[in-house]
Structures are given as structure tokens and as C-alpha cells.
């Protein structure tokens, strides 16, 4: 090492190599380095979030500023007592999030286990199975709307050929099928996320644990329950939590496939907020809805982490 040579030659002494003055200026460097990132995050994430709370207590209308005024809790009172879309949207949100996260977890787990085996063309099959993750919600909407289409859709065509249905169905416009149709399309895009994260953690489970289970006489199912699940516990808790937040907020497919209809049957709370934000005139009211949705998610996250006793691995 050069340092050692220089020390040996007494060219510099250890004290000299770090002059006091330089040390003092160095102290500022980490703050200088994190400053731009911090500014960005504060200016475009934390500050806007803060203003939502402020606007929720206002009547705030960009188109008609002369009506702007302090509203107190009026917006909230109106939401809970007069708004006939609010409670149905909560129920739809619950159905949406539970079905999405539950089914994504189950199918993602199956996919991860399958893809963790060794087989020919594994790399290629993995890439193909993960592709929907990289595809935008809007693109997925286009793809599925082409397939669900009443007149030219391939799903009607296939089901008719199989004799399951006898006339064309308008899957996305029909009250009884719209919700499930959007759920399937979103599953297509959501399963790969679980498959990727679960596969990543599956790879880190030491093979010896499975061997030990086998020696103890555990079959495939038992080693899944007693080795795989406990080893994946933290990953599962964290991914499901992040996914709940994500699906709660995700409206790309709902927006583009059904627009929240028919008859509001696919309007989640976030979809309702998006509609308010885009078409509605009172940003104060939309902000109040946003604050409520934030409260719901925050409560959920805290309760969820408590009851699952999530432990952060150290190191």
C-alpha cells in the first residue's frame, strides 16, 4: 500500500495526513450531498402533502376563486352525512384491495415456487412471466379492453367456441361482470410483482433447512408450511403491506377500463378522488376525501404491523 510506504518513509505523519482544518470542512460534505435530494423530496412530496390538510379545511375553487373561504370541518361533515358515493366507494375499495392482494399473493407464491426450480430455458420463462410488471396500467387496459370487447373480443369468441356462453357479453359494461373483469386484468399485471419479490427471498433460504425437514419426514406440503412460510414471513408482511397501499391507490385500470362504472360498481375511494380532482371544481372537498383516505391507510399500516409483529431484521 502506498499509504504504508509513505508512512515508512516518514514523508507524512498520520496526524499530518488529516489536517485539522480539512477535517472541519469535511463535516459539511454529507449535508451538502443529501441537500438536493432532501429539497426535492420536501418540495414535491412533503410540502404538497402538508397542503392537502390545509385545503381540506377550505372551500378552494380554482375556477371560481371568489367563493374561496374557510370551511372548517364542513367538507368532512358533508362527506359523512350527505355524500351518497362515499360509503359505497369504501366498500368497493375493500373488495378491490382484498381480492387483489389476496389473489396476487397466492398466485405469486405459486409462480415463485415454480420458477425457483431448475429447468430448461428458465431464464427465458422467468423473463416472460415477469413482463407484465414492466407494462403500464394504461397499456394493460388497452390489451384487456381488446380482449373483453363485446363485438371483436377474443374472450367472447373463445367462450362461445367452448360452448360456455351462447351470446356475446359486454364484460365491462355489465353490472355483474365489470368488477371481476377489472380484477382479472389487474391480477395479470400484479402477480409478477409478488413472484419477483418472493422468488428473491426463496433463493435466500438455505437448502439445508429443506434437507433437515426431509430427514424429519416432512413431505412437500409440510416443508412448505414449516420451512418456506416462516422463512418468507417478513417478506410477505412487507410486500402485502406495500401492495395494499399500492392497490388502494391504483386506478389506472379502473379509470381506463370502466371509468368507475357501470353504476359506480368499480368506483374505489381513490377512483372517486381522481374523478373529483379531474372533473370536480372544489379542490377543498377532494382534499378532504384525500385526508380521509390517508387516515384509513395510516391506521391500517399501524394495525397491520402490530398484529403481524413485523420484525425488522438487523444487519
Amino acid at each position: 500500500m502506498r499509504l504504508q510506504e509513505k508512512l515508512d518513509l516518514n514523508v507524512i505523519s498520520p496526524e499530518q495526513s488529516k489536517p485539522r482544518k480539512k477535517f472541519k470542512t469535511e463535516k459539511w460534505i454529507p449535508y451538502l450531498f443529501i441537500l438536493p435530494s432532501t429539497l426535492m423530496v420536501v418540495a414535491f412530496l412533503f410540502y404538497p402533502i402538508g397542503t392537502v390538510f390545509y385545503y381540506s379545511l377550505q372551500n378552494y375553487n380554482l375556477a371560481a376563486p371568489f367563493y374561496d373561504s374557510f370551511a372548517g370541518f364542513d367538507n368532512f361533515i358533508k362527506i359523512f352525512t350527505e355524500d351518497k358515493f362515499f360509503f359505497p366507494s369504501l366498500l368497493t375499495t375493500l373488495k378491490w384491495v382484498v381480492s387483489q392482494v389476496g389473489l396476487q399473493l397466492i398466485f405469486g407464491m405459486i409462480a415463485a415456487i415454480l420458477l425457483n426450480k431448475t429447468f430448461k430455458f428458465r431464464g427465458l420463462v422467468r423473463a416472460a412471466a415477469f413482463i407484465p410488471w414492466a407494462i403500464s396500467g394504461v397499456l394493460a387496459s388497452v390489451m384487456w379492453s381488446l380482449m373483453y370487447n363485446e363485438h371483436m373480443g377474443v374472450i367472447n369468441d373463445m367462450l362461445m367456441r367452448l360452448g360456455i356462453i351462447h351470446e356475446n357479453q359486454a364484460w365491462l359494461a355489465n353490472n355483474s361482470t365489470a368488477f371481476i373483469s377489472v380484477v382479472i386484468a389487474e391480477l395479470w399485471r400484479g402477480i409478477p410483482f409478488f413472484a419477483i419479490t418472493l422468488l428473491a427471498s426463496l433463493q435466500s433460504i438455505p437448502e439445508e433447512l429443506y434437507e433437515a425437514a426431509r430427514v424429519d419426514g416432512a413431505g412437500r406440503w409440510k416443508s412448505f408450511i414449516f420451512v418456506t412460510i416462516p422463512q418468507l414471513k417478513n417478506t410477505i408482511i412487507l410486500t402485502t403491506l406495500l401492495r395494499v397501499i399500492w392497490e388502494f391507490n391504483n386506478v389506472d385500470l379502473i379509470f381506463n377500463l370502466t371509468g368507475g362504472g357501470p353504476a359506480g360498481s368499480t368506483t374505489t375511494l381513490t377512483m372517486y378522488i381522481a374523478k373529483q380532482a379531474i372533473h370536480g371544481s372544489n379542490f377543498g372537498y377532494g382534499s378532504a376525501l384525500t385526508v380521509i383516505s390517508f387516515g384509513i391507510l395510516l391506521t391500517f399500516a399501524i394495525v397491520y404491523l402490530k398484529i403481524t409483529r413485523f420484525e425488522r431484521e438487523e444487519g
Binding site: 463535516k27 454529507p30 449535508y31 432532501t38 379542490f283 377532494g286 384525500t290 399500516a301
Partner: peptide, 29 residues
Amino acid sequence: FKGKRAFLLMLLCTQFIPRSMLIIPLFIV
């Protein structure tokens, strides 16, 4: 450095911000 944990905590918090919360205030900004 002092504040490193706070900085990390701030980064972590952002992951729990619902993206839909941003549409109205960012539009106004």
C-alpha cells in the same frame, strides 16, 4: 453524520405516501 437516521426515516416515510394524495396538491403547486 448527525441526522443520518432522520434522513433515512424521511426516505422510508415517502414509501408510505399514497400517490393519489399528490394529484390535487401537486396540480395546485
